[in-house]
Design a protein around this nucleic acid. Structure first.
Lengths: 315, 315
DNA sequence: TTAATATATATAAGCACTTATATAAATATA
DNA sequence: TATATTTATATAAGTGCTTATATATATTAA
C-alpha cells in the first residue's frame, strides 16, 4: 500500500475502492457472527420498505442509486428469502408492489441492534479521525452532481494541451509549411486562387517585407498551424492565412494563433484588424466572434470565396 | 438518493461505493474519448512497472492492495495487449518477472497527459470542496488499520446488549427460575449436591430471610441469569449461585450480575466478599479476576466441586 | 536424500454490480 | 380505434473483483 500512498491524487479512486471494500465486507461478517441471515447489500432496500411501503421496483430504484436490474435482483432474493412479499397492482398489472412480509417485519427487531452498532461504530470512527465525513461526502457528491469527473478531466486535458502549444515567429525553413498548411484547407473547402499563391509562395517578400508577420504553432515539436498579419494601411491590418492541420483541430490552436496575431497588431499600433472569411466555415466564425470580431457591411474582396468581412477595433 | 442521505451514517458504505463508481467509470470514458486503448484498473500496475521493474506478481500484489489472482488477471491482460513483457527468473523458475514492453514504454507519453489531467481535476475538486481528501483518506485507512470495522461494530453491539440487560430484585414468581438456571450449569459440568438443593429450592428462607439477596438479569423481557449474595458473617458475604443460560452467554450478563452483587454487599457494609468455584470454569475465573477477586489459601468447602476460593476486599 | 512444508502463480467459481436488450402492458397519437 | 410510443420489469451477458483451490517449484527438516 506504500506505493499507492506515494501516488497521491491519481490513486484516489483506487484507494476509495479499497476503503469501500473494507466497509462492506466487514458488514457481512457481522451478520454472520450474529447468526442473522442477512447481507449488507439488502440493507438499503429492506430499510426503505420498513419505512415506506408498498413500493414498486421503479420507485425503489429512484431512491437507492442502484440500476433497475440491480433492484430487481435484490428484490428477487428478498422475496425468495421470504422477507418481502409481492402484491400485484390492480390498476396497472405491470407493477409489482413490494412490502415487508410478516417474517421480514419480525426480523427488524433482530436487525436493529446490528444497524445501531454499525451507526455507532461509524460515528465513533468519524469522531476519532476528527472529520465530519457525512458532510464531506455530501460536499463531494454535490460537486460531482454539478460537474462530473469526465468533464472535469476533459477540461484539464484541454487546458494542458492548450498550454503546451508554442507560438513561433517566422523562419525561412518554415516557408514551405506556411504554403502546405494553407493549401490543405483551401483544397478541402474551396480552390486555390491566384491571390493566395502570391502570398503563400512568397511570404518573405509579400508579407514580412511589407510590414506584416507570419507565425506558427508548434505542438510536440511539430508545426501544426500558421497565421499571417498583413499590413493594409498604417493603422489597419488584416488577419489572414490562418490554418491548422486537420488532425489536431479542436485543441484551441486557432485561438492561440489568433490571439498572438491580435497582440502583434496592437504592438504595431493598429487601430483596426479585419479579416475575410466564408459563412460555411462555422468553427472559424465562432472563434472570431468569441475574440470580439464583429461583422461589417459587405465589401469587395480580392477572393472569390470571401462572403463575410469582420473587424476588431483595437486601442 | 434523498433517502440515502436521510439515512446518515448507516448508509455511509453505500454512498462510498456510489462515489467510487463515479470516479472509476468516468476514468474509463476519458481514455475512450482520447482514443487510448487503456483502462483505469490497469493504471496502478502499469505505473508501478514504469517506476520500478522487473517485478514479480507477488511483489506487485504487495504494493497494490489487490489480491494475487487480481494481479495475475490484470498482468495477463497487459501482456496480451503487448504493454508488458515477461522474463523468466533464472534462479527461481516459478517466478515471472514483469516489465513494460517497448510498446508499453512508448505509451507512457500518451498516457501522461491523461494522468496529469486526472490529478489536476482531483486536486481542483478537493480545493473546491475545501477538504484535504488525501489526508482524510489516510486518516481513515490508519484508523481501520488499527481496528477494523468488524471489531468496531462487534464492540458497539456488545455494549448495546450490555446496556439493555436489566437487573431485577427477587420476586416469588422467579423462584423456579432461580432453581432451573442453576440446575442447567450444575448438570452440565458437575452434579447437583445436597447443599445446592437446600438453597435452590428455598431461596426465600435460606438466603433472603438470613440477610442475603437473590437477583435476576432480564434480557428482552426474559429472565436469562441469576446470582445470590449469601450472608456468612456480619461483615463477610458470599457470591454464589451465579448462572446465565447458555444461549445468551458471552454478552457480559455475568459481569452485570456480579457487579450488582458487589454493590449490594457494599450496601450491607460487608468487608469481604468471597466465592468458591472450580478451575475448569475458565470463563468465570477470568471474570472474577477482572472484577478484582484474588485467590486465597485452600479451604474446606461444603461442595465437592469447589477447588478454588477467591475473595474481594470491600471498604 | 527424502519427505514435509512453504512459496509463486494459475485456474475455477462466485458475487455484486453493470450495460444492453427483450417483453409486456399502458398511454398517447393519428 | 389501430398504431406508435412510453413505461415497468425481466433477462442475458459482461466486468472486475473476490475466495477457494490446484499445481509446480523451492526450501526446510528428518
Amino acid at each position: 500500500m506504500e506505493f499507492l500512498k506515494q501516488l497521491g491524487e491519481v490513486a484516489f479512486g483506487t484507494r476509495l475502492r479499497l476503503l469501500t471494500d473494507r466497509f462492506i465486507q466487514d458488514g457481512a461478517k457481522i451478520y454472520q457472527k450474529q447468526n442473522i441471515d442477512f447481507e449488507p447489500r439488502w440493507f438499503t432496500m429492506f430499510y426503505l420498505l420498513s419505512q415506506r411501503s408498498p413500493l414498486t421496483i421503479t420507485e425503489i430504484t429512484a431512491e437507492l442509486g442502484y440500476t433497475q436490474p440491480a433492484v430487481t435482483q435484490i428484490a428477487n432474493i428478498l422475496v425468495k428469502k421470504g422477507l418481502v412479499k409481492v402484491i400485484k397492482d390492480k390498476t396497472d398489472t405491470r407493477k409489482r408492489l413490494l412490502a415487508l412480509s410478516p417474517k421480514g417485519l419480525d426480523m427488524i427487531s433482530e436487525l436493529k441492534p446490528v444497524w445501531q452498532g454499525f451507526e455507532n461504530a461509524v460515528k465513533d470512527l468519524f469522531t476519532e479521525t476528527g472529520f465530519d465525513m457525512m458532510f464531506i461526502i455530501s460536499k463531494l457528491e454535490n460537486a460531482l452532481d454539478e460537474k462530473d469527473m469526465y468533464h472535469r478531466i476533459s477540461e484539464k486535458i484541454k487546458q494542458e494541451q492548450f498550454d503546451k502549444i508554442e507560438i513561433l515567429g517566422y523562419k525561412p525553413e518554415y516557408k514551405d509549411l506556411f504554403r502546405d498548411l494553407n493549401y490543405e484547407w483551401l483544397n478541402k473547402y474551396f480552390t486555390i486562387e491566384n491571390e493566395d499563391k502570391v502570398l503563400l509562395l512568397n511570404p518573405e517578400e509579400e508579407i514580412i517585407a511589407k510590414g506584416g508577420e507570419v507565425i506558427f504553432a508548434s505542438h510536440k515539436n511539430n508545426i501544426v498551424g500558421t497565421a499571417a498579419l498583413l499590413k493594409y494601411r498604417d493603422d489597419e491590418y488584416e488577419l489572414a492565412k490562418m490554418a491548422v492541420t486537420e488532425k489536431v483541430q479542436g485543441r484551441q490552436i486557432g485561438k492561440k494563433l489568433a490571439e498572438e496575431i491580435i497582440r502583434l497588431a496592437k504592438e504595431k499600433n493598429a487601430k483596426v484588424l479585419f479579416l475575410e472569411t466564408n459563412a460555411k466555415l462555422t468553427a472559424a466564425m465562432k472563434l472570431y466572434k468569441k475574440l470580439g470580431f464583429i461583422l461589417t457591411e459587405n465589401h469587395n474582396s480580392k477572393y472569390a470565396r470571401s462572403t463575410i468581412k469582420m473587424e476588431l477595433k483595437l486601442n
